[in-house]
Each structure stands twice: as structure tokens, then as C-alpha cells.
């Protein structure tokens, strides 16, 4: 299930910005970081690839979003434990 670190470039229209932030906060797939200048970091946790693509399109359509850059991506499974390297050192 894809989890991505996204960087949104926002325009400086304050009304559009607050609408955009509200829309993002309303959805459980997103976790928002602090905004630095025009840049808003977001973690996106999508149920599957198809949804992930739709969510990207949805973000791109938000009124204050100019660009969406993907800075990290994980395809993960809830059941997967964090494996400490000591466990796999052989």
C-alpha cells in the first residue's frame, strides 16, 4: 500500500490556501506538516496504487496547489514489522 512523502508548492492566494488546507485535513489519507514559505510537506497513505493515482490528481486539482513533487515513497503492508538489522545479520 503506497505511502508517499509529497511536497506541495502552494500559490499565495490566502483564500485558496485555507480551502486547500481544510480539504486536505478533512481526509484521513493525509498527514500535514508545517508549511515553509510556499511549500507544504504531506505524507499520503493510499489504500492501493489506483487510489494513489486518483489522490494525486485530486491534490493537483486543489485551488492553491501549483505543483506536487514526490520526495519519498514506500509501498508497505500494515502487518510488516520494522526489521532491525541485527535480526538479519547472519
Amino acid at each position: 500500500m503506497p505511502i508517499s512523502g509529497l511536497l506541495l508548492t502552494l500559490n499565495d492566494n490566502t483564500v485558496a490556501r485555507s480551502e486547500t488546507l481544510a480539504a486536505l485535513r478533512a481526509r484521513s489519507e493525509f498527514e500535514l506538516g508545517d508549511c515553509f514559505g510556499s511549500w507544504l510537506p504531506v505524507a499520503m497513505d493510499a489504500p492501493d496504487d489506483e487510489d494513489s493515482r486518483q489522490l494525486h490528481d485530486w491534490i493537483a486539482s486543489l485551488p492553491a496547489v501549483e505543483f506536487v513533487d514526490v520526495v519519498s515513497v514506500h509501498f508497505d503492508d500494515d502487518k510488516s514489522p520494522v526489521t532491525e538489522i541485527s535480526e538479519v545479520q547472519l
Binding site: L7, D45, V71, S72, H74, D76, S80
Partner: peptide, 26 residues
Amino acid sequence: MNLTRRRFVQLSALAAATSVAKARAG
């Protein structure tokens, strides 16, 4: 570690995006 792998990955993704946001903002 009590953190689930999923939560760990979510936090890593946000941390990575935050460091890029900071860098782009100078």
C-alpha cells in the same frame, strides 16, 4: 519498538517531505 511499520513509514515520509520543504524555503 511499539511503532507499527506503517506508522514508522508515515513519519519517515513526512520527515523527508519536511526536510525538502525547509530546504526549498531556504
